[in-house]
């Protein structure tokens, strides 16, 4: 069993601000973390190979600094990490990202052993798109299962995987064929801490970096060129106007007087028809 986990280094979102003059996102001084969902993905992969045997490779596409994210997973005990990094990959949207990662997974399968299972996070907390996983599955023509909380069966020789998916109204149990791609929910497991041998390995190991040429990527499909979407403008959401505050003895009464004058409130609470 060869499991590939895709991780993304993201800024700690709470800290991100806009530079009001340049209208760009200020990343300086903002700490980078591994996308929380992806930590659960790494933990799941490690648990699966502990149970079923095999190896875990972790891939990330990003700038050279993303090496730190990979080292974190090496310290957790994964077998192999690969940085996919090239100036030509810059400004990639999800279409270009999924192309690049799918191409890298194909290369990895060829150079080592074929990847049977790809695990992604459900979404990255910086972009929240949740598109990268389905995009990669489609390109590789792998079966896909999103919102996975648990892998209940994994039988390599029968090419079978059974997973639980968290949906809006319940849990779906789904069987798919290997090779497959799953995206996982957050908080489904407790990502393990780094082990001492892991830390030493992470410290010593030279992280391989794969360029666009090395993975034989089509220049038209990567980075800016391969990205149909483009950000026209970023802005801080306009603040909603806060209403009055009441703190005196009659605060509750005053507040209710105001909302009882509001048509949405009357409609919801008194069942009055608006319009």
């Amino acid at each position: 069993m060869h499991i590939a986990v895709l991780i993304k280094q993201v800024p700690d979102t709470q800290e991100v601000k806009i530079d009001p003059e340049k209208n760009t996102i200020v990343r300086a001084g903002v700490e980078s973390i591994v996308n929380p969902f992806d930590m659960n993905a790494v933990e799941m992969a490690l648990e699966l190979v502990e149970k079923h045997g095999g190896e875990v490779s972790v891939l990330t596409m990003g700038p050279p600094q993303a090496e730190a994210a990979l080292k974190e997973t090496l310290a957790m005990g994964v077998n192999r990490v690969i940085l996919i990094s090239d100036k030509k990959f810059a400004a990639a949207d999800t279409l270009a990202t999924s192309y690049t990662l799918a191409t890298a997974i194909e290369k990895l399968s060829k150079d080592t052993t074929p990847v049977n299972l790809v695990i992604c996070g459900k979404q990255a907390v910086d972009g929240d798109t949740a598109q990268t996983g389905p995009g990669i599955a489609t390109r590789l023509n792998f079966d896909q299962a999103t919102y996975v909380t648990e892998v209940t069966e994994l039988v390599e020789n029968e090419k079978r995987i059974v997973v639980k998916r968290r949906l809006a109204k319940g849990v779906e149990i789904v069987q798919a064929q290997l090779p497959a791609l799953i995206t996982v929910e957050k908080d489904i497991n407790e990502p393990r801490y780094a082990s001492l041998p892991g830390l030493i390995k992470a410290e010593r190991e030279e992280i391989p970096s794969w360029s666009a040429d090395f993975i034989n990527a089509d220049p038209e499909q990567i980075g800016f060129k391969g990205s149909p979407t483009w950000v026209k403008r970023i802005f801080t959401p306009p603040p909603r106007e806060g209403g009055p505050l009441f703190d005196a003895d009659d605060a509750v009464k005053k507040a209710l007087d105001i909302v009882f004058d509001n048509k949405h409130f009357r409609e919801a609470v008194l069942g009055e028809e608006s319009e």
Binding site: K17, P228, T229, K232, F235, P237
Partner: peptide, 17 residues
């Protein structure tokens, strides 16, 4: 769309395709 956990809004268009 909101991005970065709702801290920032981005307006996006398709430059091609």
């Amino acid at each position: 769309r909101p991005t970065f956990g709702g801290n920032i809004m981005a307006t996006i268009f398709c430059q091609k395709g």
